[in-house]
Amino acid sequence: SHLLLTEPTPLAANQDDSTNDSSLRTLLTLCDLLNRELLVLIGWAKQIPGFSGLSLVDQMSLLQSGWMEALLVGVAWRSQGVAGEGLVFAGNLRLDEGQCRAAGLADLYEALHHLTAKYQVMNLSPEEVVTLKAMALANSDADPVDCLESVQRFQDGLHEALQEYESSRREQHRTGRLLMSLPLLRQTADRAVKALLRLHHHRHVPLHKLLLEMLDAKA
């Protein structure tokens, strides 16, 4: 319930108008949105029970390795139940396969579409989504870890909350199923990071400073 209360309001995209090239405009709009979402994500992380008790080094490491996973849980969740096959990056930024391909994001689309379809079949509840997002961050396998014990305590707290929630719904298999969806989330995030780095390095798409800093930490 704490995670539900601290879940940030979804951001709206600010349409880029610096170019007439519509696929570049889409890409720049998306990157601006991701940069602002990152800012919100960092503020949100501090409110997860146990996160602020971690050393600053561990807080940084977890965010540097888990940020894209946490952001993609949000995109996949917003894309649930949407008619058609589009990905909902924001209420006013929905991209279909063709738009993603034109923007150089075909690989990102394929990966995210797979993740979205998986979550759709699982029929996630809002409680599960916010816990999954926090667990993705806590489980980000940052290396090296400064204080393993604190990070494990942080993970255990979230796992316990999820188990309690599922047992209150008499859904004994749900916890395991959610945990088993984490490898696909990791894989999807890796593909998303690679796609953005490729666009930045090969097509010289300019990125905001924070987004670039976080991508560089994954490179």
């Binding site: 807080q59 940084m60 930490a217």
Partner: peptide, 15 residues
């Protein structure tokens, strides 16, 4: 941590 200065600053900022 010079390379990650924005993240560092955001985490240190208590608000």
């Amino acid at each position: 941590k010079e390379k990650h200065k924005i993240l560092h600053r955001l985490l240190q900022n208590s608000t």
